[in-house]
């Protein structure tokens, strides 16, 4: 007998629960979400190919973090520009790689950024007299 046919009529405790029945009837009547539970999959499995497809803060958290970092650095660069005209022109997009990176290079880039931030912290920790 096919495996799935042997499941027929086998009700779990959960299915018999009044809450489940109430929720199921809500789904049927359309008063709540009807989207079926789908098997989870990694966002990187269907990774966006262009930056326009990446929604910051909504999609995969590593990509959101990467974008956030790039934006902050671009803002900082703008503030440090000597010419106000150049500052206006600076856009974070010029710092983005042409294609959205995959999981491994993304993690590697963020790790290296973290290490650089550690160096920065060490530099700022030096006593004033040690600085040139």
């Amino acid at each position: 007998m096919a495996k799935k046919k042997q499941f027929a009529g086998k009700k779990t405790k959960l299915a018999k629960l009044p809450l489940t029945q109430a929720l199921a009837s809500r789904v049927e009547s359309g008063t709540t979400s009807v989207a079926p539970l789908t098997p989870p999959s990694y966002s990187f499995g269907q990774a966006p190919r262009t930056w326009d497809e990446v929604l910051p803060g909504v999609g995969e958290p590593l990509l959101a973090t990467f974008l956030f970092l790039i934006r902050e650095l671009a803002d900082l660069t703008s503030q440090l520009q000597s010419s106000p005209d150049l500052a206006v022109m600076t856009n974070h997009r010029i710092y983005l790689p042409p294609r959205v990176p995959g999981y491994k290079p993304l993690v590697q880039a963020l790790r290296e950024a973290r290490e650089s931030l550690k160096d920065l912290r060490n530099l700022l920790s030096f006593p004033q007299s040690d600085r040139v």
């Binding site: 489940t20 929720l23 199921a24 809500r26 989207a35 079926p36 098997p39």
Partner: peptide
């Protein structure tokens, strides 16, 4: 099977 059972609990 399990995901079908959990369907009412989607939210």
């Amino acid at each position: 099977y399990i995901l079908e059972q959990l369907k009412p609990y989607r939210d």
